[in-house]
Design a protein around this nucleic acid. Structure first.
Lengths: 187, 187
DNA sequence: TGCATTAATTAACATTTGTTAAGTTTTCAA
DNA sequence: TTGAAAACTTAACAAATGTTAATTAATGCA
C-alpha cells in the first residue's frame, strides 16, 4: 500500500484520518499474466492502482478486438465510461503481466467524498490529470499518421514496445498488425 | 445566467450561498462571429459556458491548423491541458457564430473549492462528464475510418454539419478537405 | 525437449487517403 | 450589385493502409 500512498501524496496530501479512511476501502489483489481483471458487461465499481505489472483496456467492435489503453506501475486505471455513468462497460481490463493491484471500492469512495473533502479533491485532481493525458492521445490520433504514431511510441514509450505484444500495439495505434509490421520494416 | 444555473442543477444542486458565490466569479461576454475568444500562448484561466452560439478549439502543428473540438449551447469549454497544468496553451478558442458566453474565473473558482465543497463537487462531476466524452472521441478516431467518422457525424450530430464550415470538420475528422469532399460525393 | 499454437512477417492486390493543381461556388465587403 | 477572396469540389497521380493468404518465428505446455 505504501507505493499507492506515496503516489497520492504527489497529487494531494491527506490528513492521517483521511488516509486511514481511504486505505479502509482498498484491497491488494494479484493477477497472473493474461488474466481478465474486469470482464466486459459488468458495471465498473472499482478503481485500480497498478503497484506492479501491466494492464490493458480492450473492447470489441464487430468481432474485432481493440486495445484502448495500456497502464503500468504507478498509474490509476478505471473504465471511465462505466464508472462515471453507471452503465455496464463494453470494455474489459486484462493483466498483461503478473500484476499487483490496489483495488479501490468506488461506491464507498463516493461516500467518503461526503466525509473527507480532501479525498474528493484527490480524485478530482487525478481525473483532471487523466483527462489531460486523454486529450493528448486525441491529438496524436487526430493529427499523426499511423507511421508517425508508431515512431512517437518508440521515442516516448520505448518500454511499452518491450513489454507489450505487437498485436495489441497495432490496434492501440488504430491499424492492423500487417500494417504495423510494414512500418517497422521500413527502417 | 439563468441558463447556466439551470445547467449546473442538472449536474449538482447548490445551496443558495454557493450559487451566489459561483455567480460572483462569472461574467457574461459576447463575441462576434470568427472572433478569437482565447489566443494561443496564454495560460488558460477561464472556463466558459456557452449560452448561445458555437465555439471551436484549434491549434497548429507544422503550420497546419487542426480543429480539436466544437462546442455549442449548454456546454462547458476549457483548454484542459493548460487549465489543469498551468502551462501556456498551444490552443485557441474561437467563436464560430455570434456567441454569448459565461466566463468563469478559474483562479477564484479553485479558491471557492475550499469554501464550498459542493462547488468542487459540481466541477468534479463536470470534468468526469467531459472525460467520458473524450474517451468516446478516442474510440471513434481509433476504430473508425475517416469515411465512417463522417457518416457518424451525419447521423449523430447533423446540426454540426449545418453550422460549421467543412474545412474545420475535415481537420476535426483527421483528414484533408479534399478527402472530405470525396467522401461526401461518394453518395 | 518437442510439438502444437500463437504471433509476427512478407507478398500481392484492392482501396483509401494525401498531394498538387485547376476549376467552380459561395461569401462578404466595397 | 459586383468583384475579389475564401470555401468547396474535382481530377490525376503518388503513397499508405486494408485484406487475404502464405510463410517464418516465437511461445508455451505436455
Amino acid at each position: 500500500m505504501e507505493k499507492f500512498i506515496r503516489f497520492t501524496k504527489t497529487v494531494q496530501s491527506l490528513s492521517p484520518d483521511a488516509e486511514k479512511a481511504l486505505l479502509g476501502i482498498c484491497s491488494r489483489r494479484t493477477y497472473i499474466k493474461n488474466t481478465v481483471v474486469q470482464p466486459i458487461g459488468h458495471t465498473c465499481k472499482t478503481i485500480y492502482f497498478v503497484n506492479k505489472g501491466a494492464l490493458r483496456i480492450y473492447y470489441f467492435k464487430k468481432d474485432v478486438e481493440i486495445t484502448e489503453s495500456f497502464e503500468f506501475e504507478n498509474s490509476i486505471v478505471a473504465r471511465a465510461e462505466s464508472l462515471f455513468t453507471g452503465m455496464p462497460s463494453r470494455k474489459a481490463i486484462q493483466a498483461l503481466e503478473d500484476s499487483e493491484l490496489i483495488a479501490i471500492d468506488a461506491t464507498r469512495l463516493v461516500m467518503l467524498y461526503d466525509e473527507y473533502h480532501e479525498i474528493e479533491r484527490l480524485f478530482r485532481k487525478m481525473v483532471e490529470e487523466t483527462y489531460v493525458k486523454t486529450v493528448r492521445r486525441i491529438e496524436s490520433l487526430q493529427f499523426f499518421s499511423p507511421e508517425e504514431r508508431y515512431h512517437n511510441l518508440e521515442k516516448f514509450q520505448p518500454d511499452l514496445l518491450q513489454r507489450v505484444p505487437l498485436k495489441y500495439i497495432a490496434s492501440y495505434l488504430g491499424i492492423t498488425t500487417v500494417s504495423l509490421s510494414r512500418i517497422r520494416s521500413r527502417k
